[in-house]
Simulated assay, not measured.
Amino acid sequence: MKFAITSRGDQTSNALRMKMKNYLLDFDLVFDEAEPDIVISIGGDGTLLHAFHQYQHRLSETAFVGVHTGHLGFYADWVPSEVEKLVIELARTPFSVVEYPILETIVRHIDGGKESMYLSLNETTIKATEGSLVIDVEIKGQKFETFRGDGLCISTPSGSTAYNKSLGGAIIHPSIEAIQVAEMASINNRVFRTIGSPLILPGHHTLLLRPKEAVDLLVTVDHKTILHKDVKSIQCRVSDEKVRFARYRPFPFWNRVRDSFVGNDNRG
């Protein structure tokens, strides 16, 4: 099996990366950063987001596993004290794979030039460069509303516990094929009105966002921010691709949610 290891870059994570690399080489696994079968992410959720984007061109061939060296992460199943156990599992046990939906975003421009396509593991957000975002929201080819406010967040089920949650969005189990649209500080008064609630769209529904006039927009794709000029439309839907995680033991999603947001004192 071919493997690669990404690190958050701090001293602890780098030392753990070297330790795991040497262990796995001793077990005759092949270190291959170009075409790995499995990518081990050492750090936090941000480190795994970077790894996802580094290898998004081979999602059907590469699986991810996370080791967290900081706070508990949603994408990390292992802690540093379990590294030896993980190495043995990697070397001797065929891993099972869980696949989760991701978000596809396509940005098109007024001049009809080349469109830009992005994949998000957590979310895509859209904001105006100046003032309020004013944009028509279409769902499955029908106009739903005109949004006015700070911006919109379109998240995956995996990303529903991230920025989406801080906006009042629902937490969705990552096995569900859906995307979620959450508002950022919408303008609601006697003249302007939005739904005011997060929307959960199934996999066969497409979201299309059309600015009321040619504007420059800031589009974030997970941790990256891209400026797009003279945007005609932004299309969002559940991607045909999926992210693959290597599982060597069960780690139920709702346990992660509880441990991250509720704590251990409400189990009785």
Score class of each variant (00 low, 15 high):
T194H: 09
V137I: 12
G203M: 06
G159F: 04
V191R: 14
I200H: 01
N122G: 01
G149N: 07
R210V: 13
I172R: 05
I126E: 00
C153P: 00
T194K: 06
F147C: 07
R193Y: 11
I171V: 11
P198N: 07
V221F: 05
Y163T: 05
G141N: 04
D111I: 06
I171R: 03
L201S: 05
I179N: 02
Y163V: 01
R148W: 12
T124S: 02
R148M: 13
K165L: 15
H204Y: 14
K232H: 11
I179M: 09
L133D: 02
E115M: 03
S166C: 06
A162S: 13
R210P: 07
S233I: 01
K114I: 12
A182T: 15
D230T: 08
T220I: 06
K232R: 13
A214S: 15
N122L: 00
P157Q: 05
D216Q: 11
T124F: 00
S233F: 01
S175D: 14
L119K: 02
T161E: 04
I139D: 03
K232W: 05
I139T: 06
Q142T: 15
L227F: 11
I135W: 09
I187P: 03
A185V: 14
D150I: 12
T129A: 13
L208P: 06
H205E: 15
K212D: 12
G168A: 01
G149Q: 07
H204Q: 13
I179R: 03
G131L: 04
P157V: 08
K127V: 13
T129C: 14
N189W: 00
I171N: 04
V191S: 15
V191L: 15
K114R: 14
